[in-house]
Structure formats: structure tokens, C-alpha cells
Design a protein around this nucleic acid. Structure first.
Length: 432
RNA sequence: GCGUCGGUGGUAGAGUGGUCUAUUACAACAGACUGUAAAUCUGUCGCCUCCGGGCUCCGAAGGUUCGAAUCCUUCCCGACGCA
């Protein structure tokens, strides 16, 4: 049911255009995956999301496990059905929360850090005094819920079990996203852990897939308890009330911090496992991102999709595509939109700035998104100042349109061989 | 007209003799945000500055005091009450 096909490769780079097939439709790659952590892309309905150009939605294991609970989501028919998203879907494993609620908790460390910041290597530097909510053990990670303080233990098996309940088309192995402030020895230990967890994730996944397959077999044959299902017609598989029986693809995750040795080792080990695709994870120093991606993608099997986890600034998207990345996800476009910033081809702008108060022009004159075709910058400025919810909606629509279009334009430029010209032109304007 | 209460920085509103350019909130002005702990967070917010500091300031004008946003007097303005 899951399939990846490379349609065009770009000479002298790792870039390629492809097509992923899932039970809920196709993804044309490279693609930007929209983040809908709690089974909702903040401020948007699925219709607005689709119209903005989204192909795939990624939700989060940890968050949905805590609220409303993965079994409830399973009973609802999976998170995508629950939120009325009809296209392909993914879930992240909770591995990022090991970082964001663990090593990075209460500290000024984020997904992408600046290596020029002298505080970069000081792990003690903190902005709060609270203890981390996540503690890493060899077998799994204990989390203290940020919602109510309750204690939860997530193992690779548990993460996969939750993700099977959440029912996304593509799921991820449970990994440990490390902080760049950790030393080489810790990075190496954490990597061994991530590899062991990858193996366990894969084994659990296969076991659950086999169970599903046998249930499907029963369903196809019919029994006293199951109606007989057929490949086509009104009782067809695709009309199953319980999409939890649909097959899911599992992606393994490569880690290794900023170390070339560890990154390559990880790519060798994870790449040799029977995953359907791969995620590239980690908290990066901006300067290290490109090399890390390149090291890894030269080793991972060419015929499987690569997902650069959590990355989404325009410059980074070009870098990733050029180095063989097929999928990206990032909270950036939606988060900065809610905070008043939008992408334009001339760089990011902050709509809270005074100059937009009476600018009666669209955010971008040639943008075809719903927001730009119907509203002025002045109106958006007003909505943000008045703290109207619609501000978030309209800005999010524009940003998602901008980013998904940017990546799909990259795809088109790979197919017609103009990727490097496109990149040069875009970045010249963007960084002007 | 008489009486009572009150007038504080863009706004609201603390402060009732020194530690006050004056708590706080909002507004304003900027910045940040990369597998969402986020419709969030940070900085600036009287004037000048060689960033050490200097100057001005609590309705107005006088006064008391070593020292006043804070006490007294008069005036101006507002709210309420009585005529």
C-alpha cells in the first residue's frame, strides 16, 4: 500500500522529485508536511488547509496520548478522520519531546541554534528553574505531563502502539533527539540508544502490522462477527469503518548530533534496517545542518523517502532538497503566523510593525492565496492589533500557501531542470 | 453659590515626607520563533548621552522643610451632594 517512486533526479546533486503513495492518497515530493500536533492545524479548518496547498498533516504521539488519549482517537477512526483531514497523514513518535521537555526544558535552546552564540555550549544556562519534564533511561523515557503533572513512561513499543492507535499512514520510530550542548560521549551513548530503540520500534511495528493483516484476512473471508469485505463495492476495504486496519509505513530516524562519525554510523545502521523511509533528526547548529544532511543522505538507500524533521525556513528547504530530502515538516509557518509574521518573497515581515497600519495592499501583490486575494495588509494589521482570532487564520493561510508552493515550485524546477536558477533567484530576493 | 471627594507619565491606576522618573497593567515601538510546553516570549517605553551619567517631572503658582508626587495656602479643572 505504501510506495515511493523517484520520478526525476537532478544531476550533480542529490535532489529528486518523487511520488509517495499512501492509503489516503499521494504525496508529490519534495513536499512540505503541515504540523497539526494535537490533531489540528492551529487556526485552520481542513478545508482551509487543503486550499492553502497542504498535502500531508503530521500529528504528535505524546500530545495525543495525553489528550484526548490514543484509544479514543483509535475509536474515532484515527487522528486524520477525527479531525476530518482526508489526505495522507503522519505522526511523530514523541522523540522530539524527549528533547524539548528534557534537555531543552526551561533553557534557551531550540531546534536550530546559532553556533556563534557563546552560550551555546553551556548546558546549565536556563531561563527557568523548573526541573525537566522528560528523563531518559535506556529502556524508555519518563515524562511528567505538562498538562497535569502525571507521570508516563514511553518506550519504543509504547510509542509504536500509540501510533498504531492514532492511525497515520506514516509513523516514526521512537528516538532520542539530543541537545547540541551534550558532549561527544553522551551523543554516542544516545545514538546507541536510538539505534536500539529503532530496532525495537520496527519489531513492534511488524508485530502489529501482522495482527492487522490477519484481522483483515478474517474480515475479507467474513465470519459471524465481521461482515464480509471485498476489494471493491460498498463493502470494500476502503470503506472500512475502522481505518485502524489500514497498513502503516514506518520511518526510522537518524541521529548523531554534529559528529560526522556518528551521523554516518547512524545512517549505516538505520539505513540497513527494514524501514519504509527515514527521518533525519536532531537539534542542529545552523552551520552543521547541511553537512549532516549530506553525510546521511549519501548513505541511506536512495530508493526510500527521506524526511528532514522539523525544518522549514526557506533557505533550509533549498538546502534540504538539494541534498536529497523529500519531506519536511515545521511549526514555523503556522507559529510565526500566529505571532504576526508572514513570509514574502522579499523576506519575512512582522505585521505588528507600524508601517502596515495603513498599507492598503495585499501581503504580496502576486500571491494567489485566499488571504492575499481578499484582504489588505492594513486589515491584517488591524486584526492582530485588535487580537482577533481571524488574524491567525488569515496569516496562517498565507504562510502555508507560501511554503507549500515554494516546495512544490522546487519540485517543478527539479523536473524541468531549473532548480539551481530557481534557488538563486529566490534567495537573492528573499535575503535582499 | 455652599459642601465633600478628587486631579500622577499615551490610558487606567499604585504611591501620602527621603530608598521616586515614580509599582503594575494596558497601549505604543522593536526583536525572536525551525519533528508546537507557544493566539507565545524578550527588550525599549520623560528628554539628552562620549552609556559613566546629566537634566526635567506627579493640575498651576506660592509656602513649610535639610529634603515634597506626598504637608499648608490660593487659583484652575472634574465628579457627587445641598441649594
Amino acid at each position: 500500500m505504501f510506495k515511493f517512486e523517484i520520478q526525476k533526479k537532478l544531476e550533480s546533486s542529490l535532489a529528486r522529485a518523487g511520488l509517495i503513495t499512501t492509503p489516503h492518497g499521494e504525496i508529490q515530493t519534495p513536499a512540505f508536511v503541515t504540523v497539526g500536533t494535537k490533531a489540528s492545524v492551529k487556526a485552520l479548518t481542513p478545508e482551509q488547509l487543503r486550499d492553502a496547498g497542504a498535502q500531508v498533516v503530521l500529528a504528535n504521539t505524546y500530545h495525543l496520548y495525553l489528550q484526548p488519549g490514543d484509544e479514543l482517537v483509535r475509536d474515532a477512526g484515527g487522528f486524520a478522520k477525527f479531525m476530518n483531514w482526508k489526505g495522507p497523514s503522519m505522526t511523530d513518535s514523541g522523540g522530539f519531546q524527549v528533547f524539548s521537555l528534557g534537555a531543552a526544558y526551561g533553557k534557551e535552546i531550540s531546534k536550530v541554534v546559532s553556533i556563534t552564540d557563546p552560550s551555546f555550549m553551556i548546558p546549565e544556562r536556563s531561563i527557568g528553574s523548573e526541573a525537566p519534564l522528560a528523563k531518559v533511561g535506556n529502556d524508555g523515557v519518563s515524562f511528567r505531563s505538562h498538562l497535569d503533572g502525571s507521570l508516563h513512561y514511553i518506550t519504543p513499543e509504547k510509542s509504536i502502539e500509540i501510533q498504531h492507535n492514532l492511525g497515520a499512514d506514516i509513523i516514526f520510530a521512537f528516538d532520542e533527539c539530543t541537545s547540541p550542548t551534550e558532549n561527544e560521549r553522551y551523543q554516542s551513548e544516545a545514538l546507541d540508544r536510538t539505534h536500539a530503540w529503532a530496532k525495537r520500534s520496527l519489531e513492534m511495528h511488524k508485530k502489529l502490522e501482522e495482527q492487522k493483516a490477519s484481522q483483515v484476512q478474517v474480515a475479507l473471508q467474513g465470519s459471524e462477527n465481521f461482515p464480509r469485505l471485498t476489494p471493491e463495492g460498498p463493502y470494500a476495504m476502503k470503506n472500512l469503518q475502522n481505518p485502524a486496519l489500514l497498513p502503516q509505513a514506518l520511518f526510522g530516524i537518524v541521529q548523531g548530533g554534529r559528529s560526522e562519525v556518528l551521523r554516518k554510523k547512524s545512517a549505516e545502521i538505520i539505513g540497513a534496517m527494514d524501514f519504509d523511509g527515514f527521518g533525519i533528526g536532531g537539534s542542529f547548529a545552523k552551520e552543521d545542518m547541511e553537512t549532516a544532511v549530506k553525510w546521511v543522505n549519501e548513505i541511506l538507500p536512495e530508493g526510500k523517502p527521506k524526511h528532514l524533521l522539523g525544518i522549514g525556513e526557506p533557505e533550509d528547504l533549498f538546502m534540504g532538497v538539494e541534498n536529497g530530502v523529500d519531506l519536511f515538516d515545521c511549526v514555523g509557518p503556522t507559529r510565526i503566523a500566529r505571532n504576526g509574521s508572514v513570509f514574502t518573497k522579499n523576506g519575512k515581515i512582522n505585521l505588528n510593525n507600524a508601517r502596515f497600519v495603513n498599507l492598503f495592499e495585499p501581503l504580496e501583490s502576486d500571491c494567489k492565496c485566499y488571504t492575499c486575494t481578499n484582504y489588505t495588509s492594513a486589515y491584517l494589521s488591524h486584526l492582530f492589533r485588535a487580537k482577533e482570532m481571524e488574524a491567525a487564520t488569515l496569516a496562517t493561510i498565507h504562510n502555508l500557501h507560501f511554503i507549500t508552493k515554494l516546495v512544490s515550485d522546487m519540485r517543478a524546477s527539479i523536473i524541468d531542470g531549473t532548480f539551481f536558477e530557481f534557488k538563486k533567484d529566490f534567495l537573492e530576493n528573499y535575503n535582499k
